[in-house]
Structures are given as C-alpha cells and as structure tokens.
C-alpha cells in the first residue's frame, strides 16, 4: 500500500501550552486509522491541522508526497476537495435544507447542471439512508441523522481521505452502529480515513490501526489485536477507563 498522508514531527502550542510535541505517523491508501486519547490530548487539533484549519508551529504534512502545511488559503481550498472533514456536531448550514447542504460543495466546485447535482445528491442520500429527509431543515433532524447528512456532504466530491471528528459521540447504540457501518462502507469503496474517538470498541470495528496520542506524541501504534495484547501500563489503563 502507498502512503497517502504523512505527518512528520508535528509541533503545536496554544498559549505556551504544548499540544503536539512531535507527532509523526502515516496513513496508507484505503486504510482507516483510529486516533485515540483522553480529552484535551489534541486529537481534533491534529485533524484541523491536516486540512489547514489550524497552523502548525513545526513539522511537515505531506499529501501524496507533496507538502501541504504551508499552503495559501486558495491552494488549501483545492486540497480540501481531496481531504474532507466530518465535524463532531455535523456543522450543517442551518439556513439550508438537507439537499442544499449536500449540494453546496458541488455548486461551489463543479459546473454540473442542476439535474446532475440533484442526481448525485440523491445517490449519496441513498447511501446514508436519508432520501426521505431531502427537504428537511437541519433543526428537524436527530443528532444521528445530522451526522449522516454531514457524512453525505463530506463525500459528495469523492475525496481521497475523510477525517472523522468524534462521529459516534453523543449517539445511541443504534445510531452508532449505523455510523460505523457507513464508515466501513466508505472504506470498502477505497476511501482512506482518520477516526478521532474515545470509543475504543467503535474504533476496533472500523480501524486497521489504532494510534494513541499521549503528552503530544504518538504513544502507541498498532493493530486492534496488538492494542488488546499490549502490556503497556498506559494502554491498559486507557482501555479500562474508556
């Protein structure tokens, strides 16, 4: 498998507090990795840094072997069509209905005629099982449905990587299963992903590898099996507490 994304020695400070002190890892094509750690460990900041929503202080981020950490905003906008982000709270545009939310990236970045946009939106709505919610407003949707619409919006431009920021947080078990099934479906279609979560069982169901972020560095990297078999005291405690 070829590397699609690589982070090298990422360092980031917030008001003199070290968030990342040299984070390095690679994401391979078609792979989904789980990024775990306690609250405040800097997991979401790392995802935001990858697509340039946060600037890193030091280090390199490479996408398909090209550095992307110092791109200008207009160059980042092109990159963001290849790496999409699924927000923890879905972050749907509350003045637009479901169709308009999902169609937004297509209207912004493609010259597709209206019929084709409608067809593509219908396809992704079928994929996330929300065809009947097409003309509802975000406020009319449950938390799980909002996250599925967020997924649909994130994949409409067929990106190479999707960054999942706590997609199962605050959901009931049934909705968690729906979300995890969707993530596995995306993986089957060849999409690479980084899954930020506290939910170890959920991560094990989707991820090929698990990474534990501790004190601003990657403390552990291995398969779910290696994670379960690890004798590391921190991993054992983290596993019990999560």
């Amino acid at each position: 498998m070829s590397k699609i994304l690589e982070l090298k020695n990422i360092k980031k400070k917030f008001q003199n507090k070290d968030i990342h002190q040299g984070v390095s890892f690679s994401l391979y094509k078609g792979e989904t990795i789980g990024l775990l750690g306690y609250s405040g460990a800097g997991k979401s900041v790392l995802l935001r840094s990858i697509i340039g929503l946060e600037e890193i202080d030091e280090g390199e981020i490479l996408f398909q072997n090209l550095r992307i950490d110092h791109l200008k905003e207009n160059e980042l906008n092109k990159l963001r069509q290849k790496i999409s982000y699924s927000f923890q709270n879905a972050a749907l545009f509350d003045s637009m209905n479901v169709f308009e939310n999902i169609a937004f990236p297509l209207i912004e970045h493609t010259q597709l005629p209206e019929e084709d946009i409608e067809k593509k939106v219908d396809q992704v709505l079928d994929l996330v099982g929300l065809r009947e919610a097409k003309y509802l407003m975000p406020s009319d949707l449950s938390g799980g449905m909002q996250k599925r619409v967020g997924f649909a919006r994130a994949i409409i431009l067929t990106p190479d990587i999707i960054l999942y920021d706590e997609p199962t947080a605050g959901l009931d078990p049934l909705n968690i299963e729906i979300i995890l099934k969707l993530m596995n479906d995306f993986k089957q279609q060849g999409l690479s992903g980084i899954f930020v979560t506290h939910d170890i069982p959920a991560a094990k169901k989707v991820c090929d590898r698990l990474l534990i972020l501790k004190d601003g560095r990657i403390h552990f990297s291995g398969t779910p099996k290696e994670f379960d078999e690890s004798q590391d005291h921190y991993i054992k405690t983290f596993s019990l507490n999560s």
Partner: peptide, 17 residues
Amino acid sequence: AMNVTQQIDALRALGTS
C-alpha cells in the same frame, strides 16, 4: 452563531472562502 456552531469552519473545510 455560525462561528460558534463551526459552520464557518465547515465552509473553509469544504474549500470555500
């Protein structure tokens, strides 16, 4: 309100200014 609900971040993340 868009800022505190991350809708501004969503706009940027979708490659829009």
